[in-house]
Simulated assay, not measured.
Amino acid sequence: MTYRITGLDPDPFAPYFAMDEAGLAAHGARRVTATADRGFPCRISLEDARQGEELILLHHVSHDVDTPFRSAYAIYVREGVHPLTCDDSLPPAFAGRMMAFRGFDGAGMLAAARLVPGEDGDGAIRDLFADPAVAYIHAQYATNGCFAARIERN
């Protein structure tokens, strides 16, 4: 079984970078500056922002389904980065973090889940995709509970 992890499309987030603080606040978003090289994982590049880099922190609907498992939470995005695509490998931002991998069926219902250190994500992903009921997986940063990336069968 092969899989693909892809960062979010930057286009829907581009307007946020042109907004002033009042405009961002009207959308429930904020401009932040990374205070360390770790702790600000961009959902587009799937890597942590470096200290001093600017990001937008905003509310994002990551699982837009008509089930009890519809999900939204805060995410960070950076300007001027391209979506990272990882085929049968894990993105840099997963390393060193506890990750929750949630396998959903085609109707958006939770079918199975795994909680593992990020370095063990490959095995968890392959294990979940071994279940034919799992159509796709959402990776989440377990500590903060926020969406990290969607994982598709490749």
Rank of each mutant, 00 (worst) to 15 (best):
Y76W: 04
A29I: 07
M109V: 11
G52A: 07
I137Y: 07
L84Y: 02
T143L: 13
M98E: 13
F129G: 13
G103H: 11
A100S: 13
H63E: 13
G123W: 04
A14N: 00
D20Q: 06
G7L: 02
A149Y: 07
N154K: 02
I56L: 03
A130I: 07
I75Y: 10
I125K: 08
I44L: 02
H138G: 09
A100C: 05
N144Q: 11
A100K: 08
D105N: 14
Y16C: 06
L128I: 10
T2L: 05
D9A: 03
A113H: 11
D120C: 05
A130E: 12
G28N: 10
R4L: 15
T35Q: 14
F129Y: 13
E21G: 14
A74W: 09
A100Y: 00
R30Y: 12
L115I: 15
A14D: 01
A22S: 13
A74N: 09
G23R: 04
P10R: 08
F69Y: 15
D37E: 09
L57T: 02
T67C: 07
R50W: 00
R114S: 14
A25R: 15
D37S: 09
A72S: 14
H63S: 08
H27Q: 15
P91T: 02
D105H: 09
D87Q: 08
P132Q: 11
D88K: 06
P15E: 00
Y3W: 09
D9C: 01
D127Q: 14
R4T: 15
I44D: 08
F69K: 15
A18L: 06
A135F: 12
P92R: 03
T33E: 10
A139S: 14
S89Q: 11
A49H: 04
A36E: 11
R78G: 08
Y73Q: 11
C146S: 15
L115W: 03
R43H: 05
L55T: 07
R4E: 15
F69R: 15
F17L: 04
G96N: 05
A18W: 02
V77Q: 00
M19Y: 01
A149R: 11
F101V: 12
E119V: 11
R78P: 06
E53G: 04
D48A: 04
R50Y: 03
V134A: 12
V134E: 14
I5V: 04
A74Q: 14
L84R: 13
E54Q: 13
S45N: 00
G52Q: 06
D120Q: 12
L90M: 11
L84T: 03
R102F: 03
A107M: 08
E119H: 10
A100V: 05
G103I: 12
M98Y: 01
G121T: 03
F13H: 05
V65R: 14
V77H: 02
R150S: 12
H63C: 07
S71Y: 10
H63A: 08
L55M: 10
C42H: 03
A149T: 07
A148T: 05
R70M: 08
V65M: 08
A34R: 04
A113E: 15
A49P: 07
E21Y: 06
R4M: 07
R97G: 01
S89M: 09
F17V: 09
V116N: 13
G106S: 14
A74V: 10
H27M: 14
A93Q: 12
I125Q: 07
L115N: 12
G28I: 06
A26C: 02
G108P: 10
T85D: 03
Y136I: 00
F13N: 01
A135K: 09
H82L: 05
L110F: 04
R43D: 03
R38W: 03
